[in-house]
Simulated assay, not measured.
Amino acid sequence: MAEKKKSFEDNLADLEKIVTDLEAGNVPLEEAMEKFKTGVTLSKNLEKTLADAETTVTKIMSKDGSESTFKENNNEDAK
């Protein structure tokens, strides 16, 4: 059975738990290495999710129906 995709908030909570466990220092080395790898993967996925959300939020619809990013629109305004 396929695992349900976790939400951004669930993944962030998982990452926070890993950081807390590693900071406590009570984790055996092998487990700490696995947690670290998992944490790095979670961090990259969270960063990508945020970047994708930022891209979506900053899109602006033009009068002709085309999309442009907020940055592109601001650059045109500056001219």
Rank of each mutant, 00 (worst) to 15 (best):
M1Q: 07
M1A: 06
M1V: 08
A2Q: 15
E3Y: 09
E3H: 07
K4M: 12
K5Q: 10
S7H: 07
F8W: 02
F8K: 03
E9T: 07
E9Y: 03
D10W: 05
D10I: 11
L12F: 10
L12G: 02
A13Y: 05
A13I: 09
D14T: 06
L15F: 07
E16K: 08
I18R: 01
I18P: 00
I18C: 02
V19T: 05
T20M: 01
T20H: 01
D21N: 02
L22M: 05
L22G: 00
E23S: 00
E23F: 01
A24I: 04
V27W: 00
P28Q: 04
P28I: 03
L29F: 14
E30R: 02
A32K: 02
A32C: 05
F36D: 05
K37C: 03
T38N: 10
V40H: 07
T41S: 14
T41V: 14
K44T: 15
N45L: 14
N45Y: 07
L46S: 09
E47G: 04
E47F: 04
T49R: 04
L50P: 03
D52P: 08
E54I: 10
T55S: 15
K59G: 11
I60V: 15
I60T: 13
M61H: 11
M61P: 02
S62H: 15
D64E: 10
D64A: 05
G65N: 06
S66D: 12
E67Y: 10
S68M: 12
T69A: 11
F70H: 07
F70V: 04
F70N: 06
K71V: 03
K71D: 03
N75W: 06
E76F: 08
K79P: 01
